[in-house]
Design a protein around this nucleic acid. Structure first.
Lengths: 332, 332
DNA sequence: CTGAAAGCGCTAACAT
DNA sequence: ATGTTAGCGCTTTCAG
């Protein structure tokens, strides 16, 4: 029923090998025969079977992408970067959500390897030992995108989270704040650990007291931002500035403040970490560390293509530059 | 190097057929042999090659998903619904972005069919003739998610956009507004056409004048929402209420108003169409038609599984229920 | 309950 | 420049 390479060969009076050659752009084909074959292909609407091709060549031109949750804007942005570069290099993508669950991650790795992907880009908020072991065991290259591998054994693409957070908090300190809150997402995420470390470090470096009461680590959602503000604002010595781990958190904090009549940035200042599309969609607009998600995804995928081609790469773990976009949630 | 079914067979002293049977859960295997085989599989870390399996069985247990842009929250939500149900039925997903470009959509369909996907879920803002033809030509089932097929020939899952929009505008009319603006995304999107038609229809039905000057169709972004407000607000008879085609648009309109000192909903009222996570992340929070994106994706995928199993389906084009979530951008 | 054997549709030597 | 042939790793009759 479906037309195969044999059908084309027969109709064009050539061998299947020749058809294969023209399909694969092999130059060793006389222009005339090529033309003839191409015509038959068109006429028969022949479409090469990628599965058969994959079995024979041991390459599927598809890569796996494992991310926590595609409906989360942050990961979606990353996925888009991955996909664009994948497309550019003619790879397709098998996308799966892990919900940040180690068991699922492990299963997904296995499933994808079973599907013979040529490589994998993975995004995980915590590289556990098992994950690390699985990755190192993998028959195909795997690169981490926006995910910190503390062992530094796995190829990865990130920014310098510690430095970025350090700078962000320093902006607040520079504006004269002494009581700065640190509101982050789950402390199980390695990145949040880095942000927290940086927060503590600047405070120390600048001679400020670290007050654990000003540190909140929760879900990282909009609502938890509001809640964090509410809890922090009733402290005896309430914070006058907030370092938020994400834009949603920052917006929650701002709305929490505004809902009780406070003014941002006059009464309190907020600096965020992400700079998603949302950063401009609040009043005041967010000052935020720019997390180049798209680029991280794109560079990760690019790195993967090199690894899949067995090209030598100078740098297994690449660190992209970052900057802070100043808007109006912080005075200038 | 990689361990195959033969290796397992040899080590377990059975034929490959038997190994195949245990791997596929075929009951015709003596428990003892099954156990033996399983042990060898474990010991050798045998992982079935899905590509070979796909070639032999003509089933890949993977489905294609074509969406305009995964980094757009709306489509991402849909994709998540698709993926969850796909996972539930043990399918993997090949995800690709079309950027709403007909050429890419056509190419993607072809690529995915070449990869022998068992089915496809597609999201497109306009089902062109070529797309329709391609879909009807497809050797595997294809279902549209949140995409209107005006020919009604293709399986699809949607809500009743016309009715939903009609009701939304009616809320505004019910609040006494005579000058209601209609701000939509690209008029090339079929859905937007429906919203516009509904808008005009209610106005007529309620004896109100349709003023083309109050109708804006643009990119559908946050910025275009602001721009739309700015342009509309300087009209001689400026609108007192806005029907926005999306949450971003609605937020843009609200901020446009607030930036010039207007108060929502006292000075102007806004009703939106989407009810994304953003709807609660503005002040005032958005009243909005709830577009059940996740469900649309999930139901579309579920429908696809039935089609792939050649089960009979009562309804090729399913319409999900909708409702309006009332919050504070509209008075009550 | 188990094995033998014939493909699935294509790539990749190897010939010619 | 083109054809022949042997797999790729597995599913699936068909026997027994």
């Amino acid at each position: 029923m479906t037309v195969t390479i044999y059908d084309v060969a027969r109709e064009a009076n050539v061998s299947m090998a020749t058809v294969s050659r023209v399909v694969n752009g092999n130059q060793n084909v006389k222009p005339a025969t090529r033309k003839k074959v191409l015509e038959v292909i068109e006429r028969l609407e022949y479409r090469p079977n990628a599965v058969a091709r994959g079995l024979a060549s041991k390459k599927t031109t598809t890569v796996g992408v494992i991310i926590p949750d595609i409906s989360n804007n942050l990961y979606a942005e990353l996925a888009r970067g991955i996909e664009d570069i994948a497309t550019m290099y003619r790879y397709n993508i098998i996308l799966a959500n892990s919900d940040q669950n180690e068991g699922k991650e492990l299963t997904l790795l296995d499933t994808m390897l079973g599907k013979q992907v040529d490589g994998i880009v993975m995004m995980t908020d915590k590289v556990t030992e098992k994950i690390q072991a699985s990755i190192e065991h993998s028959p195909v290259p795997i690169v981490l995108a926006g995910s910190v591998d503390e062992s530094n054994e796995i190829a990865s693409v990130n920014i310098d989270y510690f430095k970025a957070a350090y700078e962000a908090v320093k902006v607040l300190i520079g504006n004269g704040h002494k009581r700065i809150a640190c509101v982050l997402g789950p402390d199980t995420f390695t990145v949040n650990q880095y942000k927290l470390d940086a927060y503590k470090k600047v405070l120390e470096d600048e001679g400020l007291q670290v007050d654990e009461a000003l540190i909140v680590s929760d879900e990282g959602t909009y609502d938890s931002g509001i809640t964090a503000y509410e809890e922090l604002s009733v402290l005896e010595e309430a914070p006058t500035a907030f370092f938020a781990g994400s834009d949603e958190l920052a917006i929650g904090i701002i709305h929490g403040a505004q809902d009780t009549g406070k003014h941002v940035p006059d009464d309190i200042e907020v600096i965020s970490f992400e700079n998603s599309k949302l950063a401009r969609m609040v009043r005041p607009q967010l000052s935020s560390v720019v997390l180049p998600l798209y680029d991280i995804g794109a560079v990760a995928m690019r790195l993967l293509t090199k690894l899949m081609n067995k090209e030598s790469v100078e740098q297994q773990s690449v660190i992209l530059p970052h900057r802070i976009e100043m808007r109006n949630s912080v005075k200038r």
